[in-house]
């Protein structure tokens, strides 16, 4: 608990939110990169199905996504059973880990789509040239594709992070409201408002507003610098 303008506020939800968002972003960049690369190079018509699947969280109400995740990840469900087999002992609902899993699904399109578009923009000719210069597949990816997709990565990371910070529905369905474990800042603000603690809600909201603005300004600033250098 800290005191800001004479009001007692717990900053725990903020730290938790940032932690979940950081994990989600890291995981999604790791998983999203090969997925986006695969999709960018895909030529068969099944690409449409995959693109639709990835974009699904954009249109689906977060509560629907959260509901299905709640069902799938329930402690007696197949997924948890499967993880138990490998010695996993926790559970995925109403825990931080569960929240991260949920956020990964929820923010998937925000990581995959910018990456896919960045990868599609890398001319095939450059990859052909690299191949004739004896670069193998991974070599080509790291020496040509990655550096030419820097902006895509920047956009993907920011959007994923920001989107995860702002999530509400999935958290509510899948995480509930366990202090220090799943009570993210959006839920906390909602709680304060519900209990008519407008002062706390004001302070947290203002902090989120300033934080979001600063992050976005930082990103656009960097983006601009890159823009001049690369383009």
């Amino acid at each position: 608990m800290v005191e800001i303008f004479g009001v007692e506020v717990s900053l725990e939800p903020i730290w938790l939110t940032l932690e979940v968002a950081a994990w989600t972003t890291t995981i999604l960049l790791v998983i999203g990169t090969p997925l986006a690369w695969w999709m960018a190079r895909m030529q068969s018509s099944s690409k449409i199905v995959l693109e639709a699947l990835v974009a699904l969280p954009l249109v689906l109400p977060p509560t629907v996504l959260g509901f299905y995740l709640l069902i799938i990840l329930n402690p007696n469900g197949y997924v948890t059973e499967f993880l138990r087999f490998f010695g996993y002992e926790g559970q995925l609902t109403f825990t931080k880990q569960g929240l991260i899993v949920g956020s990964v699904f929820y923010s998937l399109p925000f990581a995959v789509q910018p990456l896919m578009h960045a990868f599609e923009a890398v001319p095939q000719k450059l990859l052909d040239a690299a191949a004739t210069l004896r670069a193998g597949i991974l070599d080509r990816f790291f020496s040509i594709v990655l550096p030419l997709s820097q902006r895509g990565f920047l956009v993907a990371a920011t959007l994923t992070f920001a989107h995860t910070v702002g999530e509400f529905g999935v958290v509510l369905m899948l995480g509930g409201n366990v202090p220090g474990e799943t009570r993210m800042v959006s839920i906390d603000i909602f709680d304060h408002v519900e209990s008519l603690e407008y002062d706390q809600a004001h302070i947290l909201s203002a902090m989120m507003l300033i934080f979001s603005l600063l992050v976005l300004m930082l990103v656009y600033g960097i983006n601009r610098r890159f823009g001049v250098k690369v383009g």
């Binding site: 450059l126 210069l133 670069a135 030419l148």
Partner: peptide
């Protein structure tokens, strides 16, 4: 695979790597 054929390929519009200098392009080979 092309990287095992020991071919030097010159493309219609050069296909130089835009994120590298001339020297880096040459050293890539």
């Amino acid at each position: 695979a092309p990287q095992r054929r020991h071919i030097g390929f010159v493309f219609q519009d050069a296909a130089l790597f835009p994120h590298m200098t001339v020297r880096q392009n040459l050293l890539y080979a």
